[in-house]
Design a protein around this nucleic acid. Sequence first.
DNA 1: AATAAAAAAGATTTTTTTGTCTTAAATAAA
DNA 2: TTTATTTAAGACAAAAAAATCTTTTTTATT
Lengths: 144, 144
Amino acid sequence: MFSKACEYGIRATLYIAEQSLNQRRVNIREIAKAIDSPEAFTAKIMQQLVKSQIVHSVKGPLGGFEMLRSGSHDIKLYQIVKAIDGDNIYKGCGLGLKECNEEHPCPVHFKFLNIREELREMLETTSITELAKDLDKGIAFLKQ
Amino acid sequence: MFSKACEYGIRATLYIAEQSLNQRRVNIREIAKAIDSPEAFTAKIMQQLVKSQIVHSVKGPLGGFEMLRSGSHDIKLYQIVKAIDGDNIYKGCGLGLKECNEEHPCPVHFKFLNIREELREMLETTSITELAKDLDKGIAFLKQ
DNA sequence: AATAAAAAAGATTTTTTTGTCTTAAATAAA
DNA sequence: TTTATTTAAGACAAAAAAATCTTTTTTATT
């Protein structure tokens, strides 16, 4: 469904969001441990997330990652997926046709319509903060 | 969603199924042209589909591929996906956790539940013959 | 029996994805 | 101002996926 990079990116962001609930800034070593991911690879992905303004980073001692403080905009799952994997999951054709639409549909176009729409809806409405709260409550997990 | 191999595999099977409606056996060159896929790579994928008993092949002049004649069992989309990509799409965790279930869920586990279930249902119930008929009627396409 | 056409098998190459390593830049604290 | 700690950047390496090439096997036709 998602690339490994995207999976790690979502998990990392969720961990940062959880810690940000308590004003904690976290470094890459801690993130990689918390989500059980390869540290150097995760660091690369964090660079993308910082550039896409999904998380904020601070260099130097006591530095690390935290959610943007602006607070005004709550990040949605959709933004992470778009930043890392692009929007092919819910825009591209299920069978890989370059052109696939109502007028020129692939054989499964209408069968996929509902599913893709539900997926898009879910990604666009699910907020990171919402999910982070479940982690904080201990009713959801980021590894194993 | 699916790998390239799986996309080509589905499209190839659909083309063969369409031609089998009219008792036509087709060779790999014709298939690759019809579905706009790399010929040699498609040939490799056909080998998997033959081994998985999704299509039938005949060697030698006038040989090629056709659907199994048994007729008793109508191939479902699900069988092709399982043969090529495995069942990770609707069984594996959306965030890549090794263990993810009701008792130990990832943060999006319950958000994904419906979508994955719908996808599984769709793949398990959609028949290749059904889709092939749409191709035959000219209301669905396998390229562009 | 020889030839030609087709799939099967296996080796190889290319591209993409995943992952690592090294150096540079920033910055807090001693 | 030096040192230590952190992210950023970029080069590099390994593994997987996508794609190709070559040889073998099968079989219909001449």
